[in-house]
Design a protein around this nucleic acid. Structure first.
Ligand code: FES
Ligand code: FES
Lengths: 166, 166
DNA sequence: TTCATTCAGGACCAAGCTAGTCCTGTTTTG
DNA sequence: CAAAACAGGACTAGCTTGGTCCTGAATGAA
């Protein structure tokens, strides 16, 4: 369906939030600030850490911090981190899948163009571009447990619903 | 995973095949010519007909024919026909889904730019560009110069599926 | 030291979607 | 009428995603 996974959507929200403050922020704090469920925030941040987009600090008073500035993180990086390499079809290079019948295929190698066009588009937009123009930055909550969570639950924040009618 | 559905891949193969001949072609014949399983070809063609990309002729000696020339069919149209409107997230304009929490969402409306970048990329490439090199006369339009376009990897590039193998 | 805190890394399961098949019409030709 | 081909769904198995949870390791503070 040419859609992004929900986690990617969450990731952008979380990363943008991280970009609001240089101090270490805990996953719980981010969850509280963004309204994204804490376990999900944690999951996203783990992935982001593995991908090298954020740095983590363990232990008490630990937390996360951006590894680079928002403007240095193209959207493509976030997508790649979560969804894996951008490969529209199994036949683009870098794709993990291998085509058995490249000899027969009439469109062999032809998706690469399309794929790189999209890759270029996604590489040209950074997370800084995803940040709200002038938004009231919610101050980092030191520790207050994430109880008063206002659920942001992107029921629509992502592509979940299936009401796609032309 | 930011991937296309398999059917879209099939559709391109089938449409390109249709573009090889102006005569009516039956789904069975196309299946034989492309190696795509006949039921799948039929399914794809039905969808294409509904979308108006091909014309059909019922009855004995019936078949399918392109409604427009390959060069007049952007890849975006095929994707839209099969996967529905291109909407990376539920929050892009034109998306049928509605975001409940647009008031809270930190990245509200920010995906639109990403989405249209991709839409532009996909609209700028036509099926004629997807034809095998031998018949490919139309140059691809550059969308953004990001670069070193990744040269195709002839080997290993391929659509998928074992169904292609006889 | 000992403990609370916080991240790391998976395992796990339910739900939704995709791919592929099949079946029952309907239209057209001969 | 019979055969050829498309029209339009219904249906199911399998995969992927989303979301939760559990155990363990690192860190800092009491
Ligand atoms: S989640 Fe809908 S506006 Fe962002
Ligand atoms: S299907 Fe693999 S090269 Fe086209």
């Amino acid at each position: 369906m040419l859609k992004l996974s929900k986690l990617t959507d969450y990731a952008v929200v979380v990363l943008v939030r991280l970009g609001d403050d240089f101090a270490l922020q805990t996953s719980g704090g981010i969850a509280a600030a963004t309204g994204v469920p804490e376990p999900t925030v944690a999951k996203v941040l783990k992935i982001m850490t593995t991908a090298g987009l954020v740095c983590s600090q363990r232990g008490a008073r630990g937390g996360y911090r951006l590894a680079r500035s928002l403007s240095a993180i193209p959207v493509a990086d976030v997508i790649t981190a979560i969804d894996g390499p951008i490969a529209l079809t199994a036949c683009v290079e870098h794709s993990p899948a291998i085509c058995d019948s490249s000899a027969l295929c009439p469109v062999k190698g032809r998706w690469d163009r399309v794929n790189s066009a999209i890759l270029d588009a996604l590489s040209g937009i950074s997370l800084a571009d995803m940040r709200p123009p002038a938004r009231d930055v919610v101050p980092v909550q030191p520790l207050s447990e994430a109880s008063a969570m206002q659920s942001y639950h992107p029921a629509g924040a992502s592509v979940s619903t299936t009401a796609f009618v032309e």
